[in-house]
Amino acid sequence: MKKLVPLILLSILIITSIFFFEDTDSRYEKLSKSILCPVCQGETLFDSPSEYADDMRIVLREQIDNGLSDKQIMDYWSSRFGDRINTNPQNENLILIIFPLFLGFIFFILFYRKIKE
């Protein structure tokens, strides 16, 4: 019985997180956070206070209102400002994710073999 209490509580926690989860980021926020402001120094459209970014945000809102898909919107901006405008390059550059994971895997194997010794 004593062991059951934390397990029950834990499952309540998991259920709460699944059923009550609410994503506060609107589609506009998600997209404006993944597009770089081309005239600023390393800031996204969402963050940048510049007027240029403001104009771009207006265009982005129109695109969302017109029902363009995420891919269409990203393609539009990339074609005008180059790929560097996309702040999520890991989707096209999987090596970025795979290489560190591979390193981690090797470390883990070495570590595991030491434990077995």
Binding site: G42, G82, D83, P89
Partner: peptide, 10 residues
Amino acid sequence: SKQITIGRSF
């Protein structure tokens, strides 16, 4: 010879 930006999500 192309620029790329690594952002928060990475």
